[in-house]
Nucleic acid binder design. Structure first.
Length: 564
RNA sequence: GCGCCCGUAGCUCAGCUGGAUAGAGUAUUGGUUUCCGAAGCCAAGGGUCACUGGUUCGACUCCAGUCGGGCGCGCCA
């Protein structure tokens, strides 16, 4: 992002508005000017980061350390020259500049600069943290994409929580987000479902004679059979059984997702439509024309090794049908042609092997699709423990824990917060017994409690919105108040990086920090004091904190109770 | 065997494009309420960042190898 800001804008720093959100950029610009005027570099742009330890100041830069080597100078000397240049043209937000350790430059801000974020939050309200850096960018996020052959399990739950939150995060950056659910309704999984329902309806038990090895064993199969018969259906009518079963399961999945607080999908894309609308045939033809295919053993192959895959892949089987990866490529062409040049697929890590070949297929089409298209956010499976033993997650076995059960046991808020809290690719164990017995200790309650506590305090303090907005933040002096305001000011940048890095897990972590900073401040200073001006100032900081907590929880799909 | 991911406190996990004394929660121990919500706060103990070597001013972070774990490697989806 270009920095159009020059020195002239420093004169406007005292003005209210979006100052806090711009502070970092302004400081970087100031530092960059300092680097130039000190004659250290014509191109280097200093990076600003929060020091791990608060005593070191509000911001720090390691630019002197980085420039020392190319300049052939001692880092401390470089830092001294840099500091001299900065001292020569002081920044109105900065109260102190110091050199520390091997050559860090630590910067301390004036209190007014730190507390300006409070006014920003109160003014922006629910939109605080939103930016327009990616305004108008069309982004498609595909997630859940469960086969309509059974209830959603804990893996789907993780995917739904990650996907929904990621979509929300992208929207805060101005993206036009399209939520898509891909339905594998054309494969033999559906045939298997149909057959399983028919057999159970006829009284054939799993593992008895005539039961297929890969038949679905779950109890829901029996229930669907009963419902079908009760509705007057003919079990021998495969097409009718199939339609009925898929319909029932789709409804159940939708019900679970709704209960999980997942926003409505914009589109349910049917795999079968890729065949009926000719996209599959068109894709095959295009690949043949591209010259990257060949025939061998009566099958048609694509030379995906030309694009980094470790072996070539069959497109059309000797028996005549296409392998699954052909409609997959056709599907992604559809995403591209619908104008989505940023696409994120959220899938289990067990699908990582398919990434190379899908991308290879898209490359081979030679239609200008970039190499790394689409993006993937892979998550590892959720292991479920119960009674000290692992419950195997297997759709075929039917013995897995469902999303509906998780919600029933620990509640939607806790499940969502918990599932997003972990990095997507780290495995984790969901201990059902623990979650049941200790749900009160789930971190989500800590954050929700902070929000409820603030709401309660604000009710007691009875400061009007006008008085909150007009409060004199210069009255805030406690270091814990400064620490809290500093954390609040990080929120917009946090959302931007979480969206950019496809890393929703940083949000729960951040909300915990905000809550901790508030609780700590609350213990140090009384809000409802007799001095009304002071009361308003402190209440305004609390109100801003509640707003950030509420905004963050909303992105996670977790409620922000005003009392609990 | 090959490919991708992972290995951080007793347990569950953070650690941003390499930066200062490796952090949270939980568990353990000890404090804390005549006053706005104690589901809180304050503090203590707890570490060979799997191991070995390399890159450099500096490595949990980057590279190579070893060990251990997960997943994938079908003319299944």
């Amino acid at each position: 992002m270009p920095l159009s800001c020059t020195r002239s804008c420093h004169a406007n720093i005292g003005a209210p508005g979006i100052i806090a959100a711009m502070q970092k950029e302004q400081l970087i610009e100031w530092l960059t000017v300092g680097v130039r005027s000190a004659g250290l570099s014509d191109t280097a742009v200093p990076a600003l980061e929060r020091p791990k330890q608060a005593e070191h100041g509000d911001w720090a830069t390691n630019i002197a350390l980085q420039l020392a080597k190319p300049l052939g100078r001692n880092p401390r000397d470089v830092a001294a020259a840099f500091k001299a240049a900065l001292d020569a043209s002081p920044h109105p937000l900065v109260s102190e500049i110091s050199i520390a350790g091997p050559g860090f430059i630590n910067i301390r801000l004036k209190p007014a600069a730190k507390f300006s974020v409070v006014a920003d939050v109160l003014k922006a309200g629910e939109k605080f943290g939103y930016g327009d850096a990616r305004k108008g960018e069309k982004v498609l996020v595909e997630f859940v994409s469960a086969n309509p052959t059974g209830p959603l399990h804990t893996g789907h739950a993780r995917q739904a929580a990650l996907g929904d939150t990621l979509c929300n995060l992208l929207e805060t950056q101005g993206c036009m987000v399209h939520r898509e659910f891909y339905y594998n309704d054309a494969g033999n999984q559906i045939d298997n479902l149909t057959r399983s329902v028919q057999l159970r309806a006829k009284g054939v038990e799993p593992d008895s004679e005539g039961w297929p090895d890969d038949g679905y064993r779950g109890e829901y199969i029996v229930e669907i059979g009963k419902q079908f018969v009760a509705a007057g259906g003919d079990v021998n009518d495969g097409a009718a059984v199939r339609e009925f079963a898929v319909n029932v399961l789709r409804k159940e999945q939708d019900k679970d997702l709704t209960a999980f607080g997942v926003k409505k999908f914009d589109c349910y894309y049917l795999e079968s439509s890729l065949y009926t609308d000719g996209r599959v045939d068109k894709t095959v033809t295009a690949l043949q024309v591209s010259g990257h295919t060949y025939e061998l053993d009566n099958a048609l192959w694509l030379k995906t090794t030309d694009y980094g895959d470790d072996k070539d892949r069959v497109m059309r089987k000797a028996t005549g049908g296409y392998t699954y990866f052909v409609p997959d490529v056709a599907y992604h062409v559809s995403k591209w042609e619908r104008g989505f040049h940023t696409v994120v697929n959220i899938q289990g890590t067990d699908h990582h092997g398919t990434i190379a070949r899908v991308r290879a297929g898209l490359q081979a089409l030679d239609m200008g699709i970039p190499k790394g298209y689409p993006d993937y956010l892979l998550h590892s499976m959720v292991r479920v423990m119960q009674g000290g033993e692992e419950v195997k997650i297997s759709k075929r076995a039917g013995s897995y824990i469902t999303l509906g059960e998780l919600i029933e046991w620990v509640g939607k808020d806790a499940v969502r917060f918990f599932l997003v809290s972990r990095k997507a690719d780290s495995e984790f164990t969901f201990d059902i017994d623990l979650a049941r017995s200790q749900s009160e200790e789930n971190p989500v309650y800590y954050v929700q409690y902070a929000h409820a506590r603030i709401c309660s305090v604000l009710r007691e303090a009875a400061v009007s919105d006008e008085a909150l907005a007009a409060a004199d933040r210069g009255l805030l002096t406690h270091e814990k108040a400064e620490a809290l305001a500093t954390i609040l000011a990080d929120y917009p940048a946090l959302l931007a990086t979480a969206a950019r890095d496809l890393a929703p897990h940083v949000l729960p972590y951040y909300l915990r920090e905000v809550s901790a900073a508030f609780h700590s401040y609350y213990g140090a200073e009384r809000i409802r004091v007799d001095d009304l001006a002071l009361r308003a100032a402190r209440a305004s900081l609390a109100a801003a904190t509640a707003q950030v907590l509420k905004n963050g929880l909303q992105l996670l799909g977790v409620s922000a109770p005003t009392k609990m």
